[in-house]
Simulated scan of single mutants.
Amino acid sequence: MDKTQHVVYRGQDNRIHELWFNGAWHHNDLIAASGAQVLANGDPSGYTWDVDKTQHVVYCGLNTHIQELWFNGTWHHNDLIAASGCPTSAHPNGDPNGYTWAVDGTQHVVFCDEDSNVRELWFNGAWHHNNLNAASGSPAKVAGFPDGYTWDVDGTQHVVYRGPDRHIHELWFNGAWHHNDLTIASGSPVEADGDPAGYTWDVDKTQHVVYRGPDSRIHELWFDGAWHHNDLIAASGSQVAAFSEPFGYTWDVDGTQHVVYRGPDRHIHELWFNGAWHHNDLTIASGSSVQAAGNPFGYTWDVDKTQHVVYRGEDRHIHELWFPG
């Protein structure tokens, strides 16, 4: 594509804004650029699609429809509820999450509806709608926001979420949708107090789901053919509790895993794995003087082999911690 970085957020004006980097950072108002008339009622999710080399940003609008802003050289707008024929009863009750699936070259947007079902909007040349609770036979409703990811090892899709039973539930697809209670499957003694985030690790071909427990610790459920549980605060020797949802990602440069979160000190903390778990205070390590007021988000950039963690500071600015310096 054009080897750029992109960070999207909802401003105080309820518009979707983009900060993008091509050697220098720039700003763009995506509502204005796309001609969209629908302001945002929540946080956006961004992803890219290799099939036609496009960028996509999805969000819940003030009209309670899922809105898409997409870029193929210029920005466009689409109402995905209308485009997919999704019924009125399936309007979102929270922020959507978008991802793509290389197996069949499709896009997917998942969200919680007003009846606490997991809903999916998916694109294969046209937008379609699916109720994943019904499709999987899952009896577990959603008590938070779902997160979706894919696993190259067996060519499957996965959607994880917190249920009203405080268990982490998984809906997974291998040609048909299935349900799994990951709290039970992993033997985890710790219920979830927040929304999970999922990712995969190519180094040992594993899946990972991280979440915050009622003990304010970061817990991991990981899969290598069977599901296991790990307390990452204990494993890393960290003494810092979690005051935000965690976010996990991997770095191909040195084959490591990274989980970032906000602590009670309003610093951004990192738990990272290279065969053993370690702790790092990224606010101190970076020399940042800005305390965090929101959840961090992490990603890597292949262009210069760097890691990036972005968050909203107490000054309401978007701040970036990046490595190596």
Rank of each mutant, 00 (worst) to 15 (best):
T4M: 08
Q5Y: 04
Q5H: 03
H6T: 12
G11H: 12
G11Q: 09
Q12A: 11
R15N: 14
R15C: 09
W20D: 04
W20Y: 15
N22A: 11
G23M: 05
A24N: 13
H27S: 13
H27L: 09
A32V: 12
A32C: 01
G35N: 13
V38F: 06
L39S: 03
A40V: 04
G42C: 11
D43P: 01
P44M: 14
S45F: 04
G46F: 06
Y47T: 15
T48Y: 13
V51M: 10
D52S: 07
V57A: 07
V58Y: 03
N63R: 04
T64F: 12
I66R: 00
E68L: 05
E68A: 00
E68Q: 15
N72Q: 05
W75R: 03
L80T: 05
I81V: 07
C86N: 03
P87K: 05
S89H: 10
S89M: 04
N93M: 05
N93V: 03
G98P: 02
W101D: 02
V103T: 13
D104N: 15
V109E: 07
L121E: 01
A126D: 10
H128S: 04
N131G: 03
N133G: 05
A135M: 10
P139G: 13
K141T: 09
V142L: 14
A143P: 02
F145N: 08
D152N: 10
G155C: 11
Q157H: 06
H158C: 13
H158A: 08
G163H: 01
G163F: 02
P164F: 10
P164E: 09
D165N: 15
R166Q: 13
L171N: 11
W172V: 08
F173T: 03
F173C: 13
N174Y: 12
G175T: 11
A176S: 15
H178T: 11
L182R: 03
L182Y: 02
T183D: 06
I184N: 10
A185S: 11
G187S: 09
S188G: 12
S188V: 04
P189N: 09
E191K: 12
E191S: 10
D193N: 15
G194N: 07
P196A: 14
G198N: 09
T200S: 12
T206D: 08
T206A: 10
T206Q: 06
T206R: 08
T206I: 15
T206N: 07
Q207E: 12
H208K: 11
H208P: 06
G213R: 01
P214L: 08
W222T: 08
D224M: 08
D224W: 14
W227R: 01
D231A: 12
A235I: 12
A235K: 07
G237S: 09
S238T: 02
P246L: 09
T250Q: 09
W251M: 09
D254W: 15
Q257F: 12
H258R: 08
V260R: 01
Y261D: 01
H267S: 03
H269V: 05
L271A: 02
L271W: 06
A276W: 04
A276Y: 10
H278W: 03
L282C: 00
T283M: 00
A285C: 05
G287M: 07
Q291K: 07
A292W: 01
A293S: 14
P296M: 00
G298T: 00
V303E: 14
K305W: 06
H308S: 03
R312N: 07
D315M: 06
R316C: 05
H317K: 15
H317G: 08
I318D: 01
E320Q: 03
L321Y: 00
W322C: 04
